[in-house]
């Protein structure tokens, strides 16, 4: 690898890391503002103009609070729990194509940290590890409510991972690749996958809500039954890590949804603008972020509109509704693909 490549990669990695943290930070602010709007309140407006410094104030508060590690807890695992949650949340951004490529001094730099040929499976693997953060934290707290919360989280995530994987398979069948970048390149202009896979998108979106533990699937931290859920015993920045990891996950799952179903950085009339390659790339990145922010807003919209499920309802939806629908989606996709291939072979 050349020096220029290396420098670009280092800057890019830092930028992706910084932007995910920044977006997660301001998602907390946006969430409170959205909630306030939905409930006809003002929301945070004291720190800075329009309360724009509120996330900083919250962060400082989190760092300054007293660290409490329960006496009867497993100390190493108690610390490991939030660390895994944060680590896995930050790991997923690696394979997401944040934009097309930039041409600097005649050299092409791809705006993606690494294009693994199994990109989707990588995301999927990291998500499936994320559950350990919650499970280990809940168990190590040595508290009944934490344990119940973490058990709920793990069974919920395993159940919804299945339907999620099945809905991804339909996309993989259509695009014929596992690389996220190639899937995005396969949806040029306005030919987004959501037009061909509406059912798949709906299933994936519901599963993404369940995987990030957002309402209506936030039973792991259901405060009316479980005090605080798996993070009951946590305080200070360890609690902050759990809460923060949820917002990073929300950002990354919005990015994955946009990449798989909404064309990533592609937008309609991309060729007819007549702009240079770099400008189009940067514009694409901007559009990509606008799409992501829209989905983050939808996540919040759902949270402040819909009450949460009962636990048996949640399991029933996962296994008896989403999974059969996902299998049906695969079968329909396969039939349509075969039929289209037959038509082509007749024409030739």
């Amino acid at each position: 690898m050349e020096v220029a490549d290396l420098i670009f990669k280092v800057i890019f990695v830092l930028a992706v890391f910084g932007i995910s943290l920044l977006v997660a930070m301001y998602s907390t602010y946006a969430e409170r503002k959205v909630a306030a709007f939905f409930q006809d309140r003002l929301g945070p407006n004291r720190a800075g103009p329009f309360g724009i410094l509120q996330p900083l104030a919250d962060g400082v508060k989190m760092f300054m609070k007293e660290e409490i590690i329960p006496t009867n807890s497993d100390k190493a695992l108690f610390i490991l729990g939030p660390s895994i949650a944060m680590l896995t949340a930050c790991m997923t951004g690696v394979v997401i194509p944040w934009g097309n490529s930039l041409i600097i001094n005649g050299k092409e730099f791809v705006m993606q940290i690494t294009d693994v040929n199994i990109g989707i499976l990588y995301i999927f693997g990291v998500v499936s590890i994320g559950v350990y953060g919650i499970m280990i934290g809940g168990w190590a707290s040595n508290n009944k409510f934490s344990l119940l919360g973490s058990l709920r989280a793990s069974s919920q995530m395993i159940s919804y991972e299945l339907a999620m994987g099945m809905s991804i398979i339909a996309i993989v069948m259509m695009s014929g690749t596992l690389s996220v970048r190639e899937i995005v390149l396969g949806q040029p202009g306005g030919h987004w996958n959501v037009l061909y896979q509406p059912l798949g998108f709906l299933l994936f979106f519901i599963c993404a809500l369940a995987e990030t533990n957002r309402t209506p699937f936030d039973l792991p931290e259901c405060e009316t039954e479980l005090v605080g859920g798996y993070h009951t015993e946590y305080s200070s920045m360890k609690l902050g890590f759990y809460l923060f990891a949820e917002y990073i996950n929300m950002f990354i799952s919005s990015a994955v949804i946009v990449c798989l179903y909404f064309g990533g950085y592609n937008f309609p009339f991309i060729e007819s603008l007549g702009l240079s390659h770099n400008v189009v790339s940067l514009l694409g990145t901007g559009i990509f972020f606008i799409k992501i922010f829209f989905f983050i807003f939808v996540f919040m919209w759902i949270r402040w509109t819909i009450p949460r499920f009962r636990y048996d309802q949640l399991m029933r939806v996962g296994w008896k509704v989403l999974l059969p629908l996902a299998v049906l989606n695969i079968v329909i996709t396969a039939i349509v693909l075969l039929w289209k291939n037959d038509l082509f072979s007749l024409n030739f």
């Binding site: 693997g125 499936s128 590890i129 559950v131 350990y132 058990l151 793990s154």
Partner: peptide, 26 residues
């Protein structure tokens, strides 16, 4: 063998071991 590695993580570390942990914690 990236594909095998990813499937190994997803299936064994991500699903089967979660169930192991689940039972032992209970």
């Amino acid at each position: 063998a990236q594909f095998l590695a990813a499937v190994h993580i997803i299936v064994y570390a991500g699903a089967i071991m979660v169930l192991f942990l689940f039972v032992i914690m209970l």
